[in-house]
């Protein structure tokens, strides 16, 4: 267990007989109370397929059920019931090629981090752009790690929508068409686009991309609501 930004934790799980996964897939986590009551939620896998252990990053949702348990109660050594990997669409492998355009809001960066970690693990130099929208600097997940990705040829951009620190050189507004044009690559290069985050952001960004001329079939989305639990 390790804290990850202000409201999230990364949980590293040792899974016997894990069949392997693709970057972008998720698992179902099921909790069982002593009286048999159960609650299940899905969480994106944060680790690359090449990593030794499976890692999940869980955002703490104040009125959540499973996320509160995972962030506040779970301790190293506890057992966790998992199913997966799940989802065969929102995935990327080096062999799929690029360019790669990754757009996320908040903890929507988790499955994209798995793609970036996979890219790094395989030594790929595929043209990759990442735009992350977050409330504040403290909400940004994997900040230090993403900051180092520039060396591997990943262009990392941030926009902070609820206040930026002093001397902030990134954006501080809602994602708009101008921002997407600046991040690139343009629709002519037919990038593989992955958008993940809260529903309003994903709807907004996917509509902007189609408006800019991106082929809707190359824009893959994963939406989650505040009811993620």
């Amino acid at each position: 267990m390790r804290p990850e930004a202000a409201r999230a934790k990364t949980i590293v799980v040792e899974v016997p007989d894990w069949p392997g996964h693709l970057a972008g897939q998720h698992v179902d986590v099921r909790l069982t109370a002593e009286d048999g009551y159960q609650a299940e939620r899905s969480y994106s896998i944060a680790s690359a397929p090449e990593d030794e252990s499976l890692a999940l990053t869980v955002e703490r949702i104040d009125d959540g059920e499973v996320s509160l348990y995972l962030c506040d109660e779970l301790r190293a050594g506890d057992e966790l019931e998992l199913r997966g990997p799940i989802g065969g669409y929102f995935t990327w492998q080096v062999a799929d090629g690029g360019p790669l355009l990754l757009l996320a809001g908040g903890s929507g960066v988790v499955p994209l981090a798995a793609m970036l970690r996979h890219r790094t693990a395989r030594g790929s130099r595929v043209d990759t752009r990442l735009l992350l929208s977050a409330g504040s600097w403290d909400d940004l997940l994997y900040r230090d790690e993403l900051g180092r990705l520039g060396r591997d040829g990943v262009a990392v951009h941030y926009t902070l929508t609820r206040g930026a620190p002093p001397h902030w050189s990134g954006w501080s507004r809602r994602v708009d068409a101008e921002m997407l044009r600046e991040v690139g690559p343009g629709p002519r290069t037919q990038p593989r686009v992955f958008v993940c985050g809260p529903t309003p952001l994903v709807e907004h960004v996917a509509n902007l991309l189609v408006g800019l001329g991106h082929d809707p079939r190359l824009v893959k989305t994963e939406r989650f609501g505040p009811t993620g639990g």
Partner: peptide, 27 residues
Amino acid sequence: APVSRGFRGRRRQGVDASRVPPGQYVV
């Protein structure tokens, strides 16, 4: 299923459990 240590759950009041399939939660 193994019991998750310390998990009590947040059962929703006023929901007819017979209308909720296994593994689902009401929103």
